[in-house]
């Protein structure tokens, strides 16, 4: 535990031209948020490991032709970070459009309408039509759990639920099955949620789901979201990544 008490080295860098100081080793996203600079993020969840999958948190770093996912890229001394170029907007728009087209995200009939992070981001980015065709996936809605519901047709595979169930609740009821475009969030051995023996019904997963895929039955979506998060995160884990 000794390292925890060691004073971390502080470094200086700029984000969108603004000078900021940061702890060495922290991610760009974290430092930006601490300084009230907004970078969108969908798969990122404070308090659990980073995933780096959604790619809406991309930023540019001066001197490199590449773009970087800010939720997994550590800051470095003298870095000049750009969070909002035209190019980044273009990429973020693609990411959001692709997510909206991957499964039938028809917001008007979704429980999360109005409190969905994907919907909000689409509005922010001015996504008003999709350049690619929608998929009309037809996964079965799982209503077997007495308190929660799972609609795979809304899932954006951000894995927040998986990480919080594993790292905070400590049971690892949830994981992904198959791969690529066939990936799907499952409980235990691809069981119906109500029959997943390992689930403690803690509700953390549904609280952090950014969209309307996991939700509390019979409760307005906005009320069951994230508010409780602070109390979950009793121990901040180091920001390692899972694969």
């Amino acid at each position: 535990m000794a390292e925890v008490w060691e004073a971390s080295k502080m470094i200086e860098l700029t984000i969108d031209g603004k000078k900021v100081t940061a702890k060495e080793g922290d991610t760009i996203l974290k430092v930006a948020r601490e300084n009230n600079i907004y970078i969108p993020a969908l798969c990122y969840l404070e308090g659990v490991s980073s995933f780096g999958g959604c790619r809406v948190c991309l930023v540019e770093i001066k001197g490199s032709p590449r773009v970087f996912a800010s939720c997994v890229t550590p800051v470095a001394e003298g870095m000049e970070i750009i969070t909002n170029s035209e190019r980044l907007k273009r990429y973020r728009k693609w990411a959001v459009e692709l997510l909206l087209s991957e499964r039938p995200h028809v917001c008007s009939v979704c429980v999360a309408n109005g409190s969905c992070e994907l919907q909000q981001l689409a509005t922010d980015l001015g996504v008003d039509h999709l350049r690619v065709e929608r998929e009309w996936t037809n996964y079965e809605l799982d209503l077997t759990h007495e308190r929660f519901a799972y609609d795979p047709n809304r899932c954006i595979l951000c894995t927040r639920c998986i990480r919080i169930c594993d790292e905070i609740e400590g049971v690892h009821t949830i994981d992904l099955m198959l791969r690529g475009k066939n990936s799907k969030v499952i409980f235990d051995l691809n069981d119906k949620w109500g029959f997943a023996e390992s689930c403690t019904s803690c509700g953390k997963c549904s609280a952090v789901c950014p969209v309307g895929a996991l939700y509390v039955k019979g409760k307005p979506h906005s009320e069951s979201k994230r508010k409780e998060l602070a109390s979950f995160v009793t121990s901040r884990r180091s920001e390692k990544t899972i694969g």
């Binding site: 009821t173 949830i174 994981d175 099955m177 235990d188 390992s198």
Partner: peptide, 20 residues
Amino acid sequence: IHISKLLRLPPSHVYGVATF
């Protein structure tokens, strides 16, 4: 199920790997 018990791994992890 048996493998997940013997290796003390969560069933979803075993299923996730077997289908990947």
